[in-house]
């Protein structure tokens, strides 16, 4: 029965976390720490740290972590499936609706006014990550000595390479990691 409980609990997280990413954290905390007592608050904080440092969405990562802790690998799989189940149903329906009706002029008009907003959202996310990379947890300041210069170097070179050679972004991200390790050994 624990499996059913895990599935339903993560299904709620999947269903109510609209907007993805950070929006999911309070929901996960509520289900995992407060309602079901599966993790202590400090393990939960560790979980968020891991979830942010590793690939994949936070909700999926926490589902795997919590499922594994309380019911082994089957638990991890069931928690993950529960978490993506609402998306699979709702988004498939929306995809169907989009491709059926996207040529209607009203839908065209709605999509046209949504596009710039979506670009702005992505821009805002990008700027937040950039500021985190350059200034760290404390955020932006005019004190430019606080800037992490190796990160600044990686960012500038990254933008240059992306604009100039249009490579697969994955190589830029992977290359940044390698540069980080090189800088670590140089400054160590």
């Amino acid at each position: 029965m624990i499996y059913l409980k895990i599935f339903l609990s993560f299904m709620q997280i999947g269903l109510f976390s609209i907007g993805g990413g950070y929006a999911a954290i309070p929901l996960i905390q509520n289900q995992v720490v407060e309602v079901n007592h599966w993790l202590s608050l400090s393990t939960f904080t560790d979980l968020i740290t891991i979830a942010e440092m590793t690939p994949g969405p936070i909700a999926v990562n926490s589902a795997t972590f919590v499922g594994l802790q309380i019911a082994g690998l089957p638990g991890a799989i069931i928690a993950t499936l529960g978490c993506i189940f609402p998306s699979c149903i709702i988004v498939s329906i929306l995809a169907y609706v989009y491709y059926k009706y996207r040529n209607l002029s009203t839908v065209q008009s709605v999509l046209k006014s949504l596009r710039p907003a979506i670009v702005a959202l992505i821009g805002s996310a990008g700027l937040s990550i950039l500021i985190l990379a350059l200034w760290g947890e404390n955020g932006f300041s005019f004190n430019f000595t606080d800037i992490n210069f190796s990160s600044l170097f990686v960012f500038v070179v990254g933008i240059f390479i992306l604009k100039k050679f249009k490579p697969n972004p994955i190589y830029v991200i992977g290359g940044s990691g390698i540069l980080g390790i090189i800088f670590y050994f140089i400054t160590y």
């Binding site: 990008g126 950039l130 990160s151 990254g158 933008i159 390790i181």
Partner: peptide
Amino acid sequence: SAALKSMQAGVAAVIIDVVLSMG
């Protein structure tokens, strides 16, 4: 953590680049 920290800057470059072309 050094690799992850540096990858943040790489991710920022990727996102800003795509925002510039979409914008």
